[in-house]
Every structure is written in C-alpha cells, then in structure tokens.
Amino acid sequence: MMPRMDRSDGLFLYRQMLLIRRFEEKSAEMYALAKIAGFLHLYIGEEAIAVGTIAALRSDDYVISAYRDHGHCLARGSDPGHVMAEMFGKTTGLCHGKGGSMHLVDAPRRFMGGYAIVGGHIPLATGLAFATKYQALDLVTVCFFGEGAIPSGQAHEALNLAALWKLPVIFVCENNRYGMGTPAERAIALYADVAETARSYGITAERVDGMDVLAVRDVMRKVVAQVRAGQGPLFIEAMTYRFMGHSMSDPAHGHYRTKEEVEEYRKRDPLLLLKQTILSSNLGTEADFTQLEREVGEVMTTAVKFADESPFPAPSELYNEVLAE
C-alpha cells in the first residue's frame, strides 16, 4: 500500500517522533543528574510504532501499555512537562508522583497506564474492550507490549478471551528482538513469526515494518476500521529495535549484542526514514526540520524547567488515593 501523506501530515508525524526522541534523550540526561531515579526504559528507536498507531485512533479510543511507556503517553498528547514532572517524582506529575516512569496514566486522554509486570496488562486491555462492547460504544482499545510478553500465560489467556468474545482490541506487539538481554530466539518457540501465536487463537495477525511510521499508520488505519466495525480483535507485530539498553542500568551494546548490530539498525532510524521520504517527496525542506528541532527543543526546555521547579509531594500525601471515598 502506498503511504498517504501531505505536507502538514508528514511534518506532524515527524514532530511527534522527534518530541519522543528528544524527551527520551532529556530523560537519560536527567537520570544521569539524578533528577530521575528508579527504572527508566527508553523508547528511542521505537517511536514510529506509538506515533503511527496512535495517529490512526480517535481521541476517545483506549490505549494501554507496558513499562516502556513514555512514547505512547506523549503520542497520546500528554503534556511533556507533566510527564517529566512525574518522572521527577513531583506533585505536578500526571500521577502526582505516585506512578513514575513505568506507571504513567493520563485518563482524560484515555491513556490507561503503563504496567510493569510483563504480560499483566494484556488482560486489562481485553477488559477495556469488553466494557466498550458491553456499552455498545464504537471504541477500540490498543494494547502495546513487547515480544517478551508473548510467552507469558496472561498474554495467552487474554488472546483467547479476546478471540472467544470478539472483543474490539488491537494487540500491538513491539518486537524489538530482545527481552532485556535475551534474544527472542532464546525465549519464544515461534520467534521467527510471533504473530503465529495470535493466529493460533484465530486472530488475524500481520507484521509491519515498525521503523516506518507511514507503514504503521496505514496498517493501523485498516485494522482500526475493521475492529471498530465489530470484526473482533487483531494482532500487529511491529518489527523494531531499541537503540539504547533495556533500561538505564545497561549499555546499548555489550554482552548480548554487538555495536555493529546496533549501528546497522540505526541506519533505519524511524526519524531518518521519514525525513528522507518527506525530502524526496518535496513535502518539506531542511529548514522545516530545523524549525521543528527548535520548536521541540523549546518544548523540552519548558518541560524540564516545569518539572524542576515543581514541588515534591508533601509527606502528608502518602495515604491519599489508596482508596476511593
């Protein structure tokens, strides 16, 4: 399928990916400065999946993710300042500092959270979809997870329930080839075609180039329409690669993959690919990209300043929000 894109559209997609890229780079910087603590899993290299997928959704559709969730949250439109403040543990954070990097939630934007037990949020996605179907709403739910979740029992239980009850959920498997330091071929029996897992439950599944934001959006537009029309769940395997380590505690390459391998994948950097397409299609110029860099740079400067200047929560906040009144 030929990608459909005009100038503003192309520059919008690029800007979204650039925002995530610069946000993640700034996060790493802030981690080094000890402004951010705990676990920090960067999405660098995988931006096209979040941006391409979410660009095909309506604002009232549900999105849920795992712990590498900054990109999905930002692509959903969350304010970078509030996301950064959450990672700083500040009271102005999306979750008042109670969630952190792995547990971002932006309910008004229907970003229903990042979850950090591998596979554990996939049943939640079927539940969001169950609720929309129960209420006869024409909403879809998108569930992002890594290929590392595929062997988990909860993933299989969720796939079975989604297929059994024809739930309007789209499973988006971000196959970045490694579950932490373990390559897929040492973890997944069907590593060469993990989408086969979904097919074994009768779910239509297809693979897409997860470095190509236009390809992702095209396939998602098709799939979202099918699911919204009531055809039941669908499964997309987006082939991608993370350019950084699993988290901040490991380097980009070393024990489990080589520098050469990382460099090879960096040639297919999703930002680079889209930029080349925009330039070669005469939809934009270098000046446009310079302008976008400047804009996003300003957004990030403002976001970090906001997070930095925001107060930490008072200890008296500790017991708030454990239970609903």
């Binding site: 849920i64 049943p123 939640l124 079927t126 169950f130 609720a131 029992g153 909860q154 239980e157 969720a158």
Partner: peptide, 10 residues
C-alpha cells in the same frame, strides 16, 4: 488471571 484482569479493565 485472564478474566480477573478483564474485569479490572472493565
């Protein structure tokens, strides 16, 4: 695990 998780999501 599947249907409890589904219920939580709902």
């Amino acid at each position: 695990a599947g249907f409890t998780g589904l219920a939580i999501g709902a």
